[in-house]
Simulated scan of single mutants.
Amino acid sequence: MKTNAPRPVHRWPVRITHWVNLFAMICMFMSGWEIYNASPLFGFRFPPQMTLGGWLGGAIGWHLAVMWLLAFNALCYLLWSLFSGHFRRDLLPLGLGALRRDIGQALTLRLKHQHGRYNAIQKLMYLGVLVLGLLLVLSGLAIWKPVQLQGLVDLFGGFDTARYVHFFAMSAIGLFVVIHLLMVIIVPRTLWAMITGGKHE
């Protein structure tokens, strides 16, 4: 008798784009911090050990090179997610009632992790980080080509405002990464599933 093999928790396109994204984001963060250090927005600088590029020109070179890798990787993920039904099946729908319920359970430490199923908080976070990524790209383009993309700069309210938007979008994604790592520590089997694919419960 023919049986259907269980669908993996994470299919191979998700796993490959996830790990490429990890490498690209580390490079983008570190080179971005070096660029920030050249003209800080706030009264602090990032330690040199946490930056990439060695100097402003080197950091910009790294930032722009990895930007194309990150953009191509994101495009592959988005196209695959749309045509495979990943968005519709795993990230939607996202209802307000379910979100309220899961937040309440999380605050009282009663939210369970179902292997292979995203709860409402996870859906919100993953969809939110995609929006932040788009905001990061648009503000980054406005900073990179302020003359050629003057309309985009104006949309952000000016070059300086675009820099603040870029910084805070980067910080929000950094917070997402921290929360993501904490969840991996709490539920370590999720890491193995992202390496091997895992199986639905």
Rank of each mutant, 00 (worst) to 15 (best):
S81N: 08
D154I: 10
L130M: 07
C76R: 02
M183P: 11
G58W: 15
M67V: 11
A38I: 06
Q105N: 12
T190N: 00
W12T: 12
I26V: 11
Y164Q: 10
H86E: 10
V131H: 05
A71D: 10
L91K: 08
G43F: 15
Q105G: 09
T161R: 05
L69F: 15
L109A: 07
L111I: 10
M194G: 11
R11Y: 14
H113S: 01
H166V: 10
R110C: 04
R163H: 02
W68Q: 00
A172F: 15
R11M: 02
H86A: 07
P6A: 00
V187S: 05
V177H: 08
W33F: 14
L155A: 13
M30R: 05
A65P: 14
I179T: 12
L109V: 13
Q114G: 04
G133M: 00
Q49E: 15
P40R: 01
A38N: 03
A98N: 04
H18R: 00
I195C: 01
Y77P: 14
L78Q: 07
A98G: 12
P6G: 01
R163N: 03
Q105Y: 15
F167K: 02
C27K: 03
K123C: 08
L132T: 12
H166D: 03
I35R: 00
W33R: 02
V147T: 06
Q150G: 08
F46V: 14
P8V: 11
L99Y: 09
G97D: 07
L82A: 08
N119E: 14
R189D: 11
E34A: 07
P6C: 00
T190W: 13
G57L: 01
F156C: 05
G128F: 12
A169F: 14
G85H: 05
F159G: 06
A71R: 06
G157A: 06
A98Y: 13
V129I: 15
K199G: 08
